[in-house]
């Protein structure tokens, strides 16, 4: 997915069928942390990163969007992305979370926790080639 999220992606709709890298099929609302960890392990070339939310503010560039500031991976690199408030992120050990759980429920019928500073989200990156 691009760094800034596309609008209304149907793969977040409750009931959407997701294929894990192991080939297993699960509904988006049933996914667990381990599903992402295991999928990254069996996917060649992709790596899971822990991305901690360090700041959440209204986007200056794009009205109506939210700027999420992360520190990503071991290098704690700073990355900022602009997303719609209802865009869900998978938080380790917690599940789906967004800046506006009410809007996420309206748009995708997906139950969410409120995304907060300090939450550690699942993100992916390319594995460094030796």
């Amino acid at each position: 997915a691009p760094a800034s999220a596309p609008s209304n992606p149907s793969h977040f709709m409750k009931g959407a069928i997701i294929q894990l890298a192991t080939g297993e099929l699960k509904r988006v609302e049933d996914l667990q942390t381990q599903d992402f960890v295991r999928s990254a392990e069996v996917s060649g070339g992709l790596k899971i990163d822990s991305s901690m939310v360090v700041d959440i503010r209204a986007s200056q560039q794009k009205p109506g969007l939210v700027s999420l500031h992360f520190t990503v991976g071991e290098q704690q690199s700073k990355v900022t992305i602009d997303v719609p408030p209802e865009h869900p992120f998978f938080v380790f050990g917690q599940g789906w979370s967004s800046c506006s759980p009410e809007r996420t429920a309206q748009l995708y019928d997906l139950a969410c926790h409120p995304l907060q500073v300090g939450d550690v989200c699942v993100s992916i990156t390319l594995q460094q080639q030796p």
Partner: peptide
């Protein structure tokens, strides 16, 4: 019924991207 890959659900936050 469409089937989506697991990695379409999570952001690709490449460490090289910084503020």
């Amino acid at each position: 019924v469409p089937v989506f890959p697991w990695h379409s659900l999570v952001p690709f936050l490449a460490p090289t991207q910084s503020d």
